[in-house]
Computed example of a mutant assay.
Amino acid sequence: MAFAFPAPRHTPRALRNILLERMEKAITHLSAPIADRAEGIHEARKRFKEIRAVLRLVSDTETFPAGAMRQWFRDAGRELSGTRDAQALVECWDKLDAVDPKALQTRAGQALHRALIDNAHDHLHDADALDSIVRRLCAALNQHMTHLPEIDVPETGFDLICSGFERTYRAGRRQLDAVQNAPTAEHFHDWRKRVKDHWYHTRLIAGAWPVYLEQRQSLLKTLSDLLGDDHDLMLLRSQMLAWSDRLGSDAQQQRLLGAIGRRQAQLRQEALSLGRRIYAERPRSFTRRITDYWRLWEEEDAPRERRLPFHPDPAAPLS
């Protein structure tokens, strides 16, 4: 099942089906064999983020505790974050080496690389601790699937998600303003979270106008990747400073820090240029436009009236 509404109607049922399917996929990823565990954990955390994004589209009701479920999936993702972050730092080093190899191909750079690989290996192969977490999360996910309530609300179609959709778009726009006013690592990281929400939501509604919304998805994915690489570099810098005594030459470490800083500056410039365009439209105007696309989708998806074949009246005079 694709991470998207299959049709413009019956959105409560479709949302619930999407949640169930993402949970099932998360269990599959977490159950991956040891050789594929790093990728399995990475993919499971993606499914958790997709689930949280879906839950942000709907409000709490007496029977559907969206907020509590969001919190559970946030906490579940954090339980796996140490293993994923350790692997991400190795990938971050590799990406930086591809664009600025001189600073990394030094004794200090190679020492950092070895330490990152060893750290990732230790996290991944702490079998007892990780197995316990995975078993517990899989059991809890099965419980969530078994007891997931219906989304019992009167709204359907885009009306169900309109407020949540606009709220998350507005949050991304506000976080962009925060970044421009104070370009801190924390503000960039918070912006990335909101960008990912909007990316997930754009994927969900792609059927309303695939040509436009799939292109928007691609741009949002690029923006999310730029911000993700920036965040990973921030973590790499922090880890490097924590291991400073193990890396040798101070001069070589300064070169490493310089390479990290240059790459972050480039990524942030590209992200701001793209983000300003993605978030150029005011939230209410943007949501109205998406609503119009959805209404057209509903009209096109509606069953056409059966038309009787045309039979000319034989008594009518010929013109």
Rank of each mutant, 00 (worst) to 15 (best):
A7R: 15
L15C: 04
L19K: 01
E21Y: 10
S31V: 08
R45M: 15
K46G: 03
K49H: 11
V54G: 03
L55W: 01
M69P: 00
W72Q: 05
R74F: 15
G77M: 13
R84N: 11
A86P: 03
E91Y: 02
E91V: 01
D118R: 04
L124P: 06
A129S: 12
A129F: 15
R135Q: 11
N142W: 07
Q143E: 12
H147L: 06
L148H: 02
D152Y: 14
G157L: 01
F158V: 09
I161Y: 05
I161V: 15
C162L: 13
F165T: 03
F165P: 01
G172S: 02
R173Y: 09
V179Y: 07
T184H: 04
W191S: 09
K196V: 05
W199I: 01
L204M: 05
A206V: 12
L213E: 01
S218I: 02
L219Y: 05
L223I: 11
S224R: 01
S224Q: 05
L226A: 03
L226G: 04
L227D: 10
G228K: 05
D230H: 09
L233F: 03
M234G: 10
L235S: 09
L236W: 06
A242R: 13
Q253F: 02
Q254P: 02
L256R: 05
L257D: 07
I260Q: 11
Y279V: 00
A280S: 14
R282M: 14
T287K: 13
W297G: 08
D301F: 15
A302S: 13
